[in-house]
Design a protein around this nucleic acid. Sequence first.
DNA 1: CCTTGACCTTCCCATCATGGGAAACCTTAT
DNA 2: ATAAGGTTTCCCATGATGGGAAGGTCAAGG
Lengths: 136, 136
Amino acid sequence: MNIGQAATRSGVSAKMIRYYESIGLITPPARTAAQYRVYADEDVHTLRFVRRSRDLGFSLEETRELLALWRDKSRASADVKSLAMAHVRELEEKAAELKAMADTLRHLATHCHGDHRPDCPILADFAATSPAQAKA
Amino acid sequence: MNIGQAATRSGVSAKMIRYYESIGLITPPARTAAQYRVYADEDVHTLRFVRRSRDLGFSLEETRELLALWRDKSRASADVKSLAMAHVRELEEKAAELKAMADTLRHLATHCHGDHRPDCPILADFAATSPAQAKA
DNA sequence: CCTTGACCTTCCCATCATGGGAAACCTTAT
DNA sequence: ATAAGGTTTCCCATGATGGGAAGGTCAAGG
């Protein structure tokens, strides 16, 4: 099958498939005489794997490691699990950061009248916050 | 004061200060005869404002709007509040997405032995997930 | 046989916010 | 006078993705 069909079936855009090939994440497929890339069902599986990994927030480099583990039939499941759990912690950390920002901002907004008057504690806070406070 | 000191006092790197100037986020400061940028205390306030805005997850374009609102003494606080609350919703949405990824992955990891054996439900899921399922 | 439309190829550019580093210049203190 | 450190501009890199141009290819239908 051509790249378009591989893209449709895997959920990875043709653009990205070519890119993944260029960075060595996936192996270059065979080509027709006219240089068209030819994919097999197995390639689509690999692309789906990559897609799933990306959807779960793994970077392409992490995805590369996961692919290697996937292909290494003799690796210990512990290796996969530790990589996954480390990622879980990262995701939760980032989620908590975003939540903290939202909470801070929501708190500031609570004290903002939100009417025609110009006074606004939100901007007042922005203007008054020192670099040290900003970190806290 | 020079750019280095403005950077230290504002918590914005010298590199970024120049960049903000180049994109018109902040106004170009005066220069010495030797072309050194010269900042006043007020400029540091502005930079802190930008820093605070960035720390709360606003993009530079959003920060530009906030700066405009800040400088416009006659704007209604409602304008600021609605902008802020829209951002709060975005932040919470992103946080929820990350949390969902973490939960999914944590769930998969629960079923992974995490020992010397090679079987791993995590990778099995990655390999089996179809594009349609991935969205769900 | 030829046209048309849909596909494919490579290549370059853009995004967003930030940092790195080079080469040249300035300033200040010794 | 010299050394150290700050500043200037300029170019490049990141990570993952998309847009688009210019040109080649394939299949269907006239």
